[in-house]
Design a protein around this nucleic acid. Structure first.
Length: 509
DNA sequence: CGGGTCGCACCTAAGTGCGACCCGGTGCTTTAGT
């Protein structure tokens, strides 16, 4: 059976999309593979098909619970029964049974945090893993160093699993990030299948505004002028909420907001409503996006500044997956870089916090494997660390305490934090440089991702090349005014089931 | 850093203008032992 036949047999498709075949062939050859495919072009098929052909289970590391649930659900809808999403949605009993019966599953989804729990890893070690998949692998680089340190442990986890065949998948990774992924996973002899990050159907536009007010006016103008679905990105939850209210009050229908501070049920609901077209515009923070499988997003507007080229590309990449004309507009006002700069600094502890917390831990001989509740209270209260700051410190201490003294750890940590903040600032500065440069935007983006070949400029390229007339109207003409089609009829029932289950769980507690 | 909110002064009544103060993104996990 050749690959096409297998594709037809298992998925009912007759041909591969660009890049899929190369990735699958590389994996089947037994090469560790880093696959970069544009979002929405079927990354999951790249591990599913090999898993069937190898007749061995795949372990898939996924960054978001909703993403796991989605993919697991999708597999089940296609008739695959042996799927397990090993996460906190499971009750204690379900989880225990899942771990006992792991060998019965073909697709096991798991978060990096789960893999850091000893008894979970022990259960997985007993399996004969055919393929170790890291979905959205740029998260290693983007989150591992501070926000979600368990991402940096994946290399260690992989070793403990006896270095199984590994496939790292992502949509946006610069050369630097790709090398980082490879080194953090401890991969040797990696085959890279890289597709261009260029999205010719997305016009790039940057508009300089003089004030917040001007931005807001412009936002309203665009919301009125542009038909079709759109996402507007903000750097704060409050701003996202108030902009949604402002647009609604200004007579724009079907606008909602979305951010990480909302109840998860609410988030799922809004997301689904957006996907099926009941909500037209979402005012969101960076929480919105990963795993949003919507083909016809026509515009992405940045009201605030993203913190790097990577984030920018990821966010605008949610537009125009159907290949039709779309636009990405960034509204910039001098001084906008203050907020992202501040956020990235706040994520990590200050020198004073590092010194005082470590001194406190040493003085009280705190056992880091069993931290008493009152110690946490002191760390969060007296030393006012955020959860993120403390998790980072805890991770840093536990990975260095066997070979460094307390004094050395303090110095090393201060150094690490300084370097990390400098690195992130460099990324922000790089992005600002692109923003203020006079050259073609598209060219700048591609250069950042190491694509040095001459580019072909589409009709609507960017504001530097000149967008001319007719862009907005040609986008608006695409708006689908036919009644809403449900792509997946069962979503409301799924949501209802999850809500019922959550209520039951709360009731038990 | 910048925007939003609050309270106060104004000095005469209802609304404005100013300074002080506060706050800001991304997500996973709650399981240990006879």
């Amino acid at each position: 059976m050749n690959l096409e036949e297998a594709l037809y047999k298992y998925f009912g498709y007759t041909s591969f999309r660009p890049g899929q075949r190369e990735i699958i062939e590389s994996v089947l050859k037994g090469s560790h593979t880093l696959g970069m495919l544009p979002t929405g072009t079927g990354k999951s098929l790249c591990y599913q098909l090999p898993s069937y052909l190898m007749s061995k289970p795949a372990l898939i590391v996924s960054p978001l619970l909703s993403l796991m649930q989605d993919q697991a659900e999708h597999l089940k809808v296609m008739g695959e029964k042996s799927v397990l999403a090993l996460n906190s949605f499971l009750s204690i009993a379900e989880r225990r049974r899942g771990l006992e019966e792991l060998h019965k599953y073909r697709f096991i989804f798991v978060s990096p945090e789960m893999l850091s729990i000893d008894h979970v890893l022990a259960a997985i070690q007993r399996l004969d893993i055919g393929l170790f998949v890291i979905d959205e692998a740029h998260c290693i680089s983007q989150w591992g160093y501070d926000f979600r340190p368990d991402y940096l442990r994946l290399g260690e986890v992989r070793k403990k699993l006896n270095c199984p065949l590994t496939l790292a998948l992502t949509a946006t990774a610069s050369e630097e990030v790709r090398l980082d992924i490879i080194s953090k996973l401890g991969l040797e002899h990696v085959e890279q299948v890289i597709s261009s990050v260029d999205r010719a159907n997305i016009a790039l536009s940057i508009e300089i505004c003089q004030s917040h007010q001007e931005k807001q006016d412009r936002l309203l103008e665009m919301a009125r002028e542009l038909d079709g679905s759109g996402i507007i990105y903000f750097s704060s939850k409050k701003a996202a909420e108030s902009a949604a209210a402002f647009l609604q009050e200004s007579g724009i229908p079907n606008v909602e907001f979305y951010h990480g501070g909302m109840e998860s049920e609410q988030r799922m609901l809004i997301q689904q409503q957006f996907i099926i077209g009941q909500v037209r515009i979402i005012c969101a923070t960076s929480a919105f996006g990963m795993g949003i499988n919507k083909q016809d997003v026509r515009f992405v507007i940045h009201f605030h500044l993203p913190s790097s080229m990577e984030s920018y590309l990821q966010e605008i990449g949610r537009a125009g997956r159907d290949g039709k004309q779309s636009i990405a507009v960034l509204l910039y006002c001098a001084g906008d870089e203050g907020l992202p700069a501040l956020l990235m600094e706040q994520e990590l502890p200050t020198d004073v916090q590092i010194e005082s917390v470590l001194a406190y831990l040493a003085l009280n001989k705190v056992d880091l494997d069993r931290i008493p509740k009152n110690v946490h209270e002191i760390i969060y209260g007296q030393y006012s660390l955020s959860e993120t700051q403390w998790r980072f410190m805890n991770f840093f201490i536990s990975s260095n305490r066997t070979n460094l003294s307390m004094a050395e750890i303090i110095e090393a940590m201060k150094h690490y934090v300084k370097e990390r903040i400098a690195y992130k600032n460099k990324q922000l500065q790089g992005f600002l440089k692109w923003l203020t440069a006079n050259s073609c935007r598209r060219e700048g983006v591609l250069l950042h991702f190491g694509e040095k070949e001459a580019i072909t400029r589409p009709k609507f390229c960017c504001d530097r090349c000149g967008l001319g007339e007719g862009l907005f109207s040609s986008i608006s003409e695409l708006a689908d005014r036919t009644p809403i089609k449900l792509t997946y009829e069962g979503w409301r029932q799924d949501l209802e089931n999850i809500l019922v289950k959550k209520r039951e769980q709360k009731h038990e507690e």
